[in-house]
Design a protein around this nucleic acid. Structure first.
Lengths: 343, 343
DNA sequence: CAAAAGTTGGCAAACGATTGCCACCAGATT
DNA sequence: AATCTGGTGGCAATCGTTTGCCAACTTTTG
């Protein structure tokens, strides 16, 4: 084990080197650098100077070994294809960088298996994890949360801190918007059936419609991707409805493309509402009326919650928290008055 | 240091636990798990069974400490806002996951400072890094490459392996396309002046035009973001040109929005070409003619190069490689015949 | 002035794994 | 029968850092 590293790459500087240079013990160097109050100011300054001079960088693996903390947080997303997650990634990245944590990105590709497995395997290298759009059951989630500090996004599970974007509330606004435009026949274009937000959106839509004495229908489920918009659009056209709310913008944008190809005019013949207000929702054709969600903020808040939870460890029972972020309806050009004939 | 970890979180299983359970020495367990040929088959099977039973997961920090390898690769992007990097992130993520490496995401926000600093600080926790869109000078780049294995994307520096997307070749195609449509006055909408691809695109555009006896102009520089499209559009309109090629799609899409607001018809009054074919280029209004770049593939190839370089370490001089990925022009609806009056 | 209290620094034992070296034991070779 | 060889397994050092404990010294206090 003389030199497992490259011959051309110099051995990194260690606290022992600094100790040798300043004539103190390695332990003193360690303390000077991590608990400044623990050593004499003069000694500390000598050590700091030497560290700077040698261009010392602490070895985080070695540090993690004793301290148990790695200053690394994993962010699990399901499919890096979906622009929705870019907000999450951006938000978490910002906040983690600011706090001096590393950002480990994991794509679990919609697989609960992969999700559990990855988290389990990496739990020793992580201080915590953010689960954006978990496919896990409540039981699995709680089990994992016992292994490693967790915060979920858009997935409410008892006992696991979470950030949820209140799209359902926005759905209420969207339904009111459509009803006020004279629509009486509105369908929901469903996303993945086992997705928590999907069900929440559908329930709220039904409830709001019911409070106006209307019934709503549902088509799908469709994978929440652009290509599925084709089938979704066709399905909606077949229902004869005058308006629809899609599970997310990706699906809605896909539908827009198909409707245009079929010669169905939006919003004259059919009004379309999306969810999330992702990149592109404002410049598609026509610009999409959608539920604007504070996606970046969700990522930032999730990180903040996770880190604050890490700080106040070993309290009797960690304060279970759930932050709800509001959404609002952004009206653009994909919604309009109901066609006259059907009023 | 009795128990630095949480009281409620059980101490993870170590090779010592397995050793105790099977009655062998820890070193034997280590060998059974990492060099199966080195131990007797019977012993190995007992150890493997025990490991499985105890649900053993090796501690990667400890492993890294002796081996020097962390199985972690950093991906540096400049601004997670730019959809171009979505592709890079996706591509690298896929390939890294397949190879069993962790994906550390770092946003360096267009700052060369941050880039060097981050890489320098993390070099001991990384097996290598992928630099997408580096702002570093050639000298800095070569210096860093001596510290840690590097592969750059779209940044050609002598001695540093790189993947470059051959957008300049595509620019040639785009210019031919515009000339064949009758355009004689084409301007380049410049991105950041110190960006390597920006200069490469501009040079190729000028060269291609020159070979047809045409001169081209240049406006900018503009930050390669959507909002800058407003200023860019105004600048192009002022030139009186009939066609333009923008540094990237983000800028082009921003221009489209502005042109529409100003009542400038695309492509009737002005043809617009973008670069990259990012998410959204196909559904904006009008759909954008652009240079389709294999972005994901660039990420995948970069990872493959980096990892293969890692494997064949300690060869006298690492084979300097540079992979060039082709692009092609995707014609959509933002380009058309030059206006009659100007022909 | 002695005892108590507070500072400051060093020793050495962890953390969990890897690995060079050696010892032991078969079986093969001479 | 003595030696060699190859296959197995253990010992102990090592990676770089942290931290409990103690010793030495300084300062305060009664």
């Amino acid at each position: 084990m003389d030199s497992p590293r490259q011959p051309d790459r110099p051995r990194p500087v260690t606290i022992t080197d600094i100790a040798a240079l300043t004539g103190v013990a390695p332990s003193t160097v360690s303390r000077a650098l991590t608990r400044p109050a623990r050593v004499n100011q003069a000694t500390r300054e000598r050590i700091e100077a030497a560290a700077r001079e040698l261009n010392y960088v602490p070895n985080s693996q070695a540090r993690a070994l004793t301290s148990g903390r790695t200053r690394t947080i994993a962010v699990l997303v399901s499919g890096v294809t979906n622009p929705f997650y870019f907000g999450i990634i951006r938000g978490t990245q910002q906040e983690l960088k600011a706090a001096g944590y590393a950002h480990l990105l994991i794509d679990v590709e919609d697989s609960g298996e992969l999700e559990t497995q990855m988290l389990h395997r990496m739990r020793q290298s992580l201080d915590g994890a953010i689960l954006a759009a978990s496919r896990l059951s409540e039981r699995e989630l709680v089990g994992l949360a016992a292994e490693i500090p967790l915060v979920t996004i858009n997935r409410d599970a008892r006992g696991v801190p979470s950030v949820v974007i209140d799209t359902p509330a926005g759905i209420g606004q969207a339904v009111e918007h459509l009803i006020s435009l004279g629509h009486r026949d509105i369908v929901y274009v469903s996303g993945p059936e086992r997705s928590w937000p999907n069900e929440a959106r559908w329930h709220r839509m039904r409830a709001t419609a019911a409070s106006h004495g209307l019934q709503v229908r549902r088509v799908g489920p469709f994978p929440p991707e652009r290509p599925s918009g084709t089938a979704a659009a066709d399905a909606v056209v077949n229902t004869g409805a005058t308006a629809c709310i899609a599970f997310n913008d990706l699906l809605a944008i896909g539908m827009l493309t198909r409707l245009r190809d079929r010669g169905v005019r939006v919003p004259e013949d059919l009004s379309v509402v999306g969810c999330d207000d992702i990149f592109g929702a404002d410049f598609c054709n026509p610009p999409l009326t959608t539920l604007t969600a504070p996606i970046d903020q969700a990522g930032r808040v999730a990180v903040a919650m996770l880190l604050s939870g890490l700080a106040e460890r070993s309290t009797p029972h960690p304060p279970r928290r759930c932050v709800v972020l509001p959404t609002h309806l952004t009206v653009r050009e994909s919604t309009g008055p109901a066609p006259a004939g059907t009023a």
